[in-house]
C-alpha cells in the first residue's frame, strides 16, 4: 500500500487522487514535531478560569461522582447552610434537563445548568461560558457539579481549586480501585448516605483502605446529606478553603499595592 495516501497501489511517480493536489509517491513528506498535550486547549481555558477565580477570591470545587451518589442533595444542603456566610453559586452539568439547577435555586443559591447533550463531562470552555450567565460569588464558593460519571471528568481540568469525589454506601466499596484515575485526582472524598449503612453490605473500612491505596493524600469525610450527620465537618472544610483563597487574594493585592506605592515614590522624587 502507498505509505503516503494509503491508496492501495504499489505505484511510483506522480498521480492524482481526483482532487487538486497530485503528489509524488517517491517523495518523502516533512515530519513536524509537535510534542503537545492533547488536552492543551482545555488546559488553556482552565488556566483562564483559574486566574479569574483567584482575582475575584472564589474558592471553586469540582464535584464528581457516579450518577445517584447524592451530589445534588448534598449541594442543596450545603448552599442552604453557607449562603448566609458568603456568596455561593453552582454550575451543574447533566446530559439533559435543568432539574438539578432548579433544586439548587430552590435552596437559595444562583445556579446554571450546562446540558452537555451527548457529552460525558464538563470542560473548561463550557464552564467559562456558564460563568457569563451566573453572578460571580466574589469572596465565596463556586460549586461545579460535574456530569455523573467516574471516568471522563477525571481528565478535564475546569480551573477548580480541588476535585471532590462523592461516593455513596449504596455503591460498591471497591469503586476507588475500579475508577482509580478519578480517586487519584481528588483532594477530598465524601462517603455519603451513611444513614443507610445498617441496610447495605458496605464495608467502610475496606473502602477507606482502597481509597488510601489509590491516593494516600486524599482526605476522607463520612456524612449523610439527608440526615445532616457529618455535614459540619464538610462545611468546615469548605470554609477553610474559602478562607485560604481570601488570604491568598489579600497577599496578592497587598503585593500589588506595595509595588504601586514604590512606583509612585520613585516618580515623585
Amino acid at each position: 500500500m502507498c505509505a503516503t495516501c494509503g491508496c492501495g497501489i504499489n505505484e511510483t511517480g506522480s498521480h492524482s487522487h481526483g482532487h487538486d493536489h497530485p503528489h509524488d509517491h517517491a517523495a518523502e513528506g516533512r515530519l513536524i514535531s509537535i510534542e503537545r498535550d492533547i488536552l492543551a486547549k482545555n488546559a488553556g481555558f482552565a488556566a483562564g478560569n483559574r486566574r479569574l477565580f483567584a482575582e475575584r477570591g472564589v474558592f471553586t470545587l469540582n464535584l464528581v461522582s457516579s450518577p445517584g451518589s447524592g451530589k445534588t442533595t448534598l449541594l442543596a444542603q450545603t448552599v442552604q447552610a453557607l449562603r448566609e456566610e458568603f456568596p455561593v453559586a453552582v454550575i451543574g452539568g447533566d446530559q439533559q434537563t435543568a432539574r438539578d439547577a432548579e433544586r439548587i435555586q430552590a435552596a437559595g443559591a444562583p445556579a446554571v445548568q450546562i446540558n452537555t447533550g451527548k457529552g460525558c463531562h464538563l470542560d473548561a470552555h463550557g464552564v467559562g461560558h456558564a460563568l457569563e450567565r451566573l453572578p460571580m460569588p466574589e469572596g465565596g464558593v463556586l460549586f461545579i457539579e460535574n456530569v455523573g460519571n467516574l471516568v471522563c471528568p477525571a481528565d478535564f481540568d475546569l480551573g477548580e481549586a480541588d476535585k471532590v469525589v462523592v461516593l455513596s454506601v449504596t455503591e460498591g466499596e471497591d469503586k476507588p480501585l475500579k475508577y482509580a484515575n478519578m480517586f487519584a485526582a481528588a483532594r477530598l472524598m465524601l462517603l455519603n448516605k451513611t444513614d443507610l449503612l445498617p441496610y447495605v453490605d458496605f464495608d467502610v473500612e475496606r473502602c477507606l483502605e482502597y481509597a488510601r491505596r489509590v491516593n494516600p493524600d486524599m482526605q476522607i469525610l463520612q456524612l449523610s446529606a439527608r440526615t445532616g450527620d457529618g455535614m459540619a465537618a464538610w462545611l468546615d472544610w469548605v470554609r477553610q478553603g474559602q478562607q485560604a483563597v481570601l488570604a491568598q487574594q489579600i497577599s496578592r493585592l497587598e503585593a500589588e499595592l506595595t509595588s504601586a506605592r514604590a512606583r509612585l515614590a520613585v516618580n515623585g522624587r
Binding site: T4, H23, G29, L31, I32, S33, I34, R36, D37
Partner: peptide, 11 residues
Amino acid sequence: QEMRVKDIQVE
C-alpha cells in the same frame, strides 16, 4: 500518564 501528539507527517 501522558497524552501527547508527538508528530505529524505532512506534504
